[in-house]
Amino acid sequence: MSPGHTQENQPHDAVRETAPASDGGAAPRARPAGPLARVARRWPTWTALALVVATFADGVPPLPLLATLLAVMPLCYIAFGVLRGELARRDTVVLQLLGVALFGALALLALSVDRTAGHYVMAAGWFAHAVWDFAHHRAGRVVPRAWSEWCCVVDLFGAAAIVLWV
């Protein structure tokens, strides 16, 4: 806090955060929360939207590519979970492996039906993965929040683009 400001009269455009203090305790610090700062904090969303536009601007990529991405996405979550030490609990490991199985099955199903149905199954799979991402973002576990935010936006708008282009 700047001199002359108390917690009660802190400017409204500041967000309270907790930062480690030198004595090992947590000391509050203000983070600017003006319009530009709020936009900047959403960098995962902006980069995801740019990727979706670049990927789907001229149509839907080949179904096998979309299916591969759907099957690989949950493997990234497992890799992050291992690197971050988040897979120590059995229930977390089981849930992540169920995600691998579910999204892998949807990818295979999309490739085993006719092209139009495959695209709709793929869109449903990408939408389901957006829900998966959102749940991880809210929980703040397994993957970094920036990753789950980015992936949720890619999946959600990618699913919409698939449906719109079919």
Rank of each mutant, 00 (worst) to 15 (best):
S2L: 13
S2N: 10
S2D: 13
T6W: 11
N9V: 05
P11A: 14
V15D: 12
E17G: 01
E17C: 06
T18C: 01
G24T: 04
G25N: 10
R29W: 06
R31Y: 10
A33Q: 07
A33N: 15
A33V: 00
G34S: 10
A40S: 06
R42Y: 01
W43F: 15
P61R: 12
P64Q: 07
P64M: 09
L70D: 03
A71E: 11
L75H: 02
Y77D: 15
Y77C: 04
I78D: 07
I78W: 15
I78C: 08
I78T: 08
F80R: 06
V82P: 03
G85N: 09
E86Y: 06
E86G: 03
L87G: 00
D91W: 11
L95C: 02
L95F: 09
V100H: 05
V100L: 15
L102I: 14
F103A: 04
A107I: 03
L108V: 14
A110H: 04
L111N: 12
V113I: 08
D114L: 05
R115S: 11
T116N: 04
A117D: 12
H119M: 06
V121T: 07
M122Y: 03
G125M: 05
A128Q: 09
A128P: 05
V131F: 10
D133Q: 07
F134D: 00
F134K: 00
R138C: 03
V142F: 09
V142N: 03
V142I: 15
V143C: 15
P144A: 09
A146M: 00
A146S: 15
S148Y: 07
E149L: 07
W150P: 02
W150N: 01
V153C: 05
G158W: 04
